[in-house]
């Protein structure tokens, strides 16, 4: 009777990917016709530079959404991880710090991110408090610690190679974009090919039934939020290297955009369904819309409004498609019905 219960899951997602692809092509064509500056190497590479920060944070948001939750602390966890790296660099040489210091700093940053996710996971798993509430408190905590320790200032003064990583490219592809692609592939494998990912989908649909089937749901929740925290740390490191500075509050406006991107990529707001590929496509579409509008002279704020309208349009289209296909199915199966 309801759409979620009786759909064929596989076809649903294949249709979703096709729909997003068609839309992506349409948008690219439209912008190329509207402006000769759109399909240029400069614009493509600037898109590839802008996308990774939002993309990595979206990956960090995706797994909690699949589990039926949310992680509202992602941006500030990324900032805190960035701060951990920044201090390591500052404490061990500042601009003269070596690569080994950078590696150590990254390890520390990843630890900070993982720890933040781990705490959310433990509280969610053992108290069954709503993840929105738990991660919201973690967000307030992370923001607070970050602002306390950095006094709200920008932290700068890193070795040169850090910026080279953030703004460099391999085979013409910006390094942050490469990092993002690697992470997206890793996420895809974790979600589709590991017990952890499988369990996440199942508990996202019904945690009690999943626990009754012998899945260690508490551990799964802890691991999935830890993974989310780790991805935040990656985003934090990338943002540090791109901006060559860290400030608590960097990327704050990304928070709700990552949720938007997940929903656009057909992740089910109730949990249990959603894949990396459509979310990736949704991110690319958002980036194309924003860059294209930018070339046409509009600013980021108009893009933000359009992203919102775009999400509404997509969910309304999904609704219309569902109604239409239900009617169509009825007609096909009852050819003699008057």
């Amino acid at each position: 009777m309801t759409s979620t219960n009786h759909r064929n899951i596989k076809y649903y997602f294949e249709g979703e990917v096709a729909g997003l692809l068609i839309f992506l092509i349409a948008v690219v064509v439209a912008f190329s016709l509207a402006s000769p500056n759109f399909l240029t190497a400069t614009n493509l590479s600037s898109m590839a530079i802008q996308l990774p920060a939002l993309g990595l944070l979206t990956l960090a948001m995706l797994i909690p959404i699949l589990s039926g939750g949310l992680n509202l602390s992602i941006t500030y966890t990324a900032n805190m991880s960035g701060l951990a790296l920044a201090w390591t660099l500052q404490a061990l040489g500042g601009p003269e710090a070596g690569v080994e210091v950078f590696v150590l700093g990254c390890a520390l940053a990843l630890t900070v991110g993982a720890l933040s996710g781990f705490v959310i996971g433990v509280v969610v798993a053992y108290t069954k408090a709503h993840p929105i509430l738990v991660s919201l408190s973690m967000m307030i905590l992370m923001r607070g610690i970050g602002e306390f320790l950095s006094r709200g200032k920008d932290i700068t003064g890193f070795p040169k190679f850090v910026q080279e990583i953030g703004q460099g490219a391999i085979w013409g592809i910006p390094i942050p974009m490469l990092v993002f692609i690697v992470c997206a592939v890793a996420w895809h494998i974790i979600l589709s090919r590991t017990r952890q990912g499988f369990g996440t989908y199942m508990l996202g649909s019904n945690i009690m039934a999943t626990a009754y089937s012998g899945v260690a749901t508490k551990r799964n929740l802890i691991v999935l939020y830890t993974l989310s925290g780790l991805m935040c740390a990656v985003a934090g490191i990338v943002m540090l290297s791109q901006f060559n500075s860290v400030r608590v509050g960097h990327g704050e406006s990304f928070l709700l955009i990552t949720v938007l991107a997940c929903f656009l990529g057909a992740a089910d707001p109730f949990g249990g369904f959603g894949r990396v590929l459509p979310v990736f496509l949704a991110l690319v579409i958002l980036q194309v819309l924003s860059s294209g509008l930018n070339i046409l002279g509009a600013n980021q704020h108009l893009s933000t409004a359009l992203w919102g309208i775009f999400l509404l349009a997509v969910v309304i289209l999904r609704w219309a498609w569902w109604r239409y296909s239900a009617k169509l199915k009825w007609k096909l199966e009852e050819p003699n019905n008057e």
């Binding site: 709700l256 704020h301 409004a305 992203w307 919102g308």
Partner: peptide
């Protein structure tokens, strides 16, 4: 979340 972005984007724009 969609209307948040629409309202905010349009307001700032």
């Amino acid at each position: 979340i969609a209307t948040f972005n629409v309202f905010f984007g349009l307001l700032m724009f």
